[in-house]
Design a protein around this nucleic acid. Structure first.
Length: 490
RNA sequence: CGGGAUGUAGCUUAGCCCGGUUAAAGUGCUGGUCUGGGGGACCAGAGAUCGGAGGUUCGAAUCCUCUCAUCCCGACCA
């Protein structure tokens, strides 16, 4: 029987869950709010990691690793940081189990209580700045440019696979600088790296900007972000880069001797992207037939399906396939040849479509006779028969075309769903429709909050390249010199 | 934490209101035959202490009580 995906139009979030499960990306686990990332899903994450990791290294960063546990006392040192995370921290209180006396299994040994409780990291600023204090004495020790790939835990009430889970995987960069200017530049540089990655690898257009005070990272002076628009018209924050000022340096007493021999606090940044990118990737390109992957992030870019009758016939085809496969691999194209006899061609076609493989090649008797191969592209679902000659160049070209086409489609969709509103009535109805709405805002948290209460829309970001435009706040009517980006968000 | 709902085969569910043979179906799984250019057909099989505990009854998946778990809505959420 046909596995049926829920259609996007009938129930978007069910469609999303169906894709995650049926494309073998992830599933819920025995632990509430925590997911199992399955091999195929993890392979996509590994692709993302390897691209980003290269980008971080090219910009001078090094990887390191800091502990998953943070002493409670460290956590208390930066006041707003505590406020931001306290409500969703998992806490380790004991270090030993024992057999229950009634034989019902194991229980926590009450005599093994930790003297100081440990927080499972929701983010690592505190433990890292406690460490940086020891690393930094002089301006000569700066800058420090570290990144870590790690898991973090935030005890969320409502979770969704990839988009919001209690445990998730991410990278967190933590840098230390001698000057404010340098730290701000670092923050912006990383934002550019994220935007570059989103657009050129994920084929996902983003808006760059800064967060309002209400949406800012707990402990940051300024939070920069990239925001993407999903197919259902809701925004998703996909990356953040924070200028932390001297907040953590002061909280952890990290000072350095300047060239002039004076003491000053160190300037800091932190930045991260997480497995939420997987959710963004799914919701940006996929359709009612399943996942659609941009070639640059697909675990394998091409799948080859043989169509045959009997073992002898398969051998003949496999010989031909081997030649094609080698030619493609020589081009650096990743190929999977699925010659399993346990599944039929039709089944395989549907399966790889569901899994978003960019190009499918099929080869059968007809092709053996004609020296051809069938080429199907996932993004448009078009099928064409190509001559085998020079197939590797044709496929290489097609992969690039698919990558470009996905970006163009996503960009068009984003532009179509981006509006300007000049009255509150207009604003409300556009927000209701779904999409990005540019509107004037008077700059106060009160207005921001009122708008949120009335429309559920939040300010996603304040654009960086400021297009000065005088206007009046869409709610209060007070003067404003710039539009900001509103949307309902995940 | 407030409101609502659901637990029956690996998965999705029927049966429950109105108690009565051996708990039903689809899908998935195993074996076989035919098949093979878009999730194939047929045949034969395996698979469930009906979430758990207690109670009512001659008899409980079904009724009652308690309990556990999960899901949805709200609140909360860089």
């Amino acid at each position: 029987m046909v596995k049926n995906l829920t259609a996007r139009d009938s129930d978007y979030s069910k469609w999303y869950n169906d894709i995650v499960q049926q494309a073998d990306l992830a599933e819920n686990s025995g632990v509430r709010g925590c997911m199992v990332i399955k091999p195929y899903g993890y392979a996509i994450w590994e692709k993302m990691q390897s691209v980003l990791d290269k980008m971080f290294k090219q910009t001078g960063h090094q990887n390191a690793y800091f502990p998953i546990f943070i002493p409670k006392s460290y956590f208390s040192k930066e006041a707003s940081h505590v406020d931001g995370f306290a409500k969703e921290c998992a806490v380790v209180t004991h270090y030993r189990l024992k057999n229950a006396e009634d034989g019902s299994g194991v229980e926590v040994d009450p005599t093994a209580r930790l003297e100081e409780e440990l927080i499972v990291r929701p983010t690592s600023e505190t433990i890292i700045w406690d460490t940086y204090r020891k690393w930094i004495q002089s301006y000569r020790d700066l800058p420090i440019l570290c990144n870590q790939w790690a898991n973090v835990v935030r005890w969320e009430m409502r979770t969704r696979l990839f988009l919001r889970t209690a445990e998730f995987l991410w990278q967190e960069g933590h840098t230390a600088h001698a000057t404010e200017q340098e730290a701000i530049e670092e923050t912006k540089q990383i934002l550019d790296v994220y935007a570059d990655f989103a657009e050129n690898f994920m084929a996902m257009p983003v808006e760059k900007g800064t967060k309002t005070e209400a949406e800012r990272f707990a402990g940051a002076i300024e939070t920069y972000c990239i925001e993407a628009l999903m197919q259902d018209g809701k925004a998703l924050q996909v990356g953040t880069s924070h200028f932390l000022g001297q907040n953590f340096a002061k909280a952890f007493d990290v000072k350095f001797a300047t060239k002039e021999g004076k003491k000053d606090f160190v300037w800091a940044t932190s930045w991260g992207v997480s497995t939420r990118l997987m959710g963004a990737l799914i919701m940006t390109h996929s359709d009612d037939n399943g996942l659609v992957l941009p070639p640059k992030l697909a675990p394998f870019q091409v799948v080859i399906v043989p169509i045959y009758k009997g073992e002898e016939h398969l051998k003949q085809i496999s010989k031909k396939v081997e030649i094609v496969q080698k030619a493609l691999q020589a081009k650096g194209i990743t190929v999977k040849y699925d010659d399993r006899d346990t599944h039929k061609p039709g089944w395989k076609f549907a399966e790889y479509e569901l899994k978003g493989v960019p190009i499918r090649l099929a080869i059968g008797q007809r092709d053996l006779e004609n020296g051809t191969i069938e080429v199907a592209r996932r993004d448009t679902l078009e099928k064409e028969t190509y001559q085998l000659t020079d197939i590797e160049n044709k496929v290489e070209h097609l992969l690039q075309q698919i990558q470009d086409n996905l970006y163009r489609k996503a960009l068009t969709r984003k532009e179509e769903k981006t509006y300007k509103a000049d009255s509150f009535e207009e604003f409300k109805s556009l927000i209701e429709t779904g999409g990005f709405v540019w509107a004037h805002w008077d700059g106060t948290s009160e207005t921001e909050e009122k708008i949120k209460q009335q429309t559920k829309a939040t300010i996603r970001c304040i654009p960086i390249e400021k297009e000065a435009e005088l206007g009046k706040c869409v709610l209060s009517g007070k003067a404003s010199n710039q539009r900001v980006l509103f949307a309902k968000s995940y």
